[in-house]
Nucleic acid binder design. Structure first.
Lengths: 121, 121
DNA sequence: CCGTATCCTATATGATACTG
DNA sequence: CAGTATCATATAGGATACGG
């Protein structure tokens, strides 16, 4: 299936049951990548400020622990959404940013946000 | 914030850090609603066929158990995405369908699918 | 500064048997 | 037909202390 199909083409194909490839739900992989309590907030922080450091993420995301921030960043990195660059200066620091793949999620977030404003009180 | 803001307005506001309301990530509530191993597939099946019965969902979604299908449907119903209608005939049956709120997720899935086709091998 | 190591709890998921 | 009840396991999330 083409990447630039229109919305009308998409809806038509969904109703025909032919959007899946190999029998898998087409949105599941992305939902898995974004699953977890903190990942969307981490990506959102990177949309605002980029690159951003570990300590800034920790300060901006209320309630997150070192463990969860580290784990989430590692998974986002493994999935190719986030880039980690380490600077071995004194003092050492690390800069996180979105990859092209990660930045390309913004239209998805746009639709989710529009939906949220309409349907979530 | 308006529901019909353009994508350009959205991106601008994100970068200014003013998309959140009350300090919460705007996409988190939806991600929570769609979290879990089976929910997106359930919604997808309802996009193809609607209304659909419990047994058909079970047959179409490979590997799902009674327990998980029931739990997932109950949560989707509680979140207002899915409607459950019970027919007390002989034999009894139940029909599930998407609410307007649930149907309105299709543009979100469209963007997710386009992203998936581009970035997932 | 940016984590890791360890341990603990909560929640999600799963297997199986049974029922209005 | 469409579930529920029960029990078991796996994974996610969290608290705290410490290290390169």
């Amino acid at each position: 299936m083409s990447t630039d199909m229109t919305y009308e083409e998409y809806v038509k194909k969904v109703k025909q049951g032919i959007v899946t490839e190999g029998g898998n739900c087409p949105v599941t992989p992305l939902l898995v990548m974004l699953s977890g309590k903190w990942k969307s907030q981490i990506i959102y922080e990177m949309c605002i400020q980029e690159p951003i450091r570990f300590g800034e993420l920790k300060k901006n995301i209320d309630g997150i622990t070192n463990t969860m921030l580290t784990n989430s960043l590692r998974e986002l990195e493994k999935d190719g959404l986030v880039l980690r660059v380490q600077f071995n200066e004194i003092p050492p620091h690390v800069e996180y940013s979105l990859t092209e793949k990660g930045k390309a999620l913004l239209p998805v977030f746009y639709e989710m946000t529009k939906w949220g404003f309409k349907y979530i009180p």
